[in-house]
Design a protein around this nucleic acid. Structure first.
Lengths: 152, 152
DNA sequence: CTGTTGGTTCTCCAAATAAAGAACAAACTT
DNA sequence: AAGTTTGTTCTTTATTTGGAGAACCAACAG
C-alpha cells in the first residue's frame, strides 16, 4: 500500500495529464511510476496499487507505450514486464510539447491565406504570432544548449 | 455562407483546440472569428454560420470570455454584441500556455519530496527537468524582447 | 402595454468515454 | 497434458459531455 502523500500526488498528476488529453487511468499510471521508489511496476502491481481492472491497465499501458511515455524491461528468468517512465528522454518529450504548441502557426498561416485585407491590424497580429512561433521553434535547441552550459 | 476553404479551416482550428481541452463548439467559434474578414460576428451570425443552437452558442461564448479568448463590443444605436478574438493580446495568451506547461515542475518537485533515494539517476533526471523548467520560465520575457528587437 | 430583438436558463437526450468483468490466448511449469 | 502466469480482447455498462429546443427574461420600439 501507498501512503497518503503518494496517493494524493498520484491523483494530482493524473488530473494534470487528464486535462492535457490523457484518459484518466493513463495519467494515474504515470503518477504511480513517478512516485514509486523503484520507479517501475509490473502489470499486476499497477492493478493492485491503483485498484483497477486488468483490461483498463492493459489498454492504458499500450497507449502510453505508443506515445513513448513509458517502456518496459524484463528481468532474467521472469516473464513479467516491468514498466517505467522513460525519464531519460525528458528533453525529447518536452521538445515535442513545445513543438506541439507552435503548431498553432501552421493553421494561422492558412488563416492569413483565406483572410481579405479588411482588417490589416488584425492580420498583422496574426503575422506577428506566426513569426514569433518560428522564432521560438528555432530557438529551442539553443535553449537546451544554453541550459546545459549553465549547469556545467 | 462561407466558402469550402474557410469551412474546412474552421473545422481544423476547432479540432486543434478541442484536443487542448476546449469543448467542440468553442474551438469552432474561435475558428470562425479568425476566418471572417471582419474578424467579428454577432450572436445570431455565429448561430447561422455554424448552424448550431442559441443555447450552445450562449454557453460557449461565455466560457470563451471568461478565459479571455474573446471579447465583445457594441455599436452605437445597436444592442447586438460583436464578438471578436482578442488578437492584440496574443503574447499574454501564449505566455499563459507556456507557463501552463512549466506547471509540470510544481508537481515534479513534490515527486522528489516523496521519492526515496533508491534510484538516484531517475531522481537526477527529474531534478534536471525541474531546473530546465525554471530556466525556461525565466527566459520567456527575454525571448519576447529578443523577438521584438529582431523585428525592429 | 404589446411586440420584437438579443440573449439566457433549464430540461432532456444522443453520443462518446472509460472502465468492469469474463472469456480467451500464449508461454512457460510441473 | 494439466495448470499457472501474464497479459489481451470483447461485450456490457455507468458516467460524462455537449448540444437541442423551449420557456423565459430584459431592454427597447411603436
Amino acid at each position: 500500500m501507498l501512503n497518503e502523500n503518494k496517493l494524493e500526488l498520484i491523483e494530482r498528476i493524473g488530473v494534470f495529464h487528464e486535462q492535457r488529453g490523457m484518459q484518466p487511468l493513463m495519467g494515474r499510471i504515470v503518477g504511480l511510476l513517478l512516485v514509486l521508489d523503484e520507479a517501475e511496476a509490473t502489470f499486476d502491481e499497477i492493478v493492485d496499487y491503483l485498484n483497477v481492472s486488468k483490461s483498463a491497465v492493459s489498454n492504458a499501458l499500450n497507449i502510453l507505450q505508443l506515445q513513448n511515455h513509458i517502456a518496459y524491461k524484463t528481468k532474467h528468468g521472469e516473464r513479467k514486464r516491468y514498466f517505467y517512465i522513460t525519464m531519460d528522454r525528458w528533453e525529447e518529450a518536452l521538445e515535442k510539447e513545445l513543438c506541439d504548441i507552435s503548431e498553432i502557426s501552421t493553421f494561422m498561416k492558412d488563416v492569413l491565406k483565406v483572410r481579405g485585407d479588411v482588417k490589416p491590424e488584425f492580420n498583422h497580429h496574426i503575422q506577428n504570432l506566426c513569426s514569433f512561433m518560428e522564432f521560438l521553434k528555432n530557438k529551442i535547441p539553443s535553449l537546451f544548449n544554453e541550459f546545459k552550459k549553465s549547469k556545467a
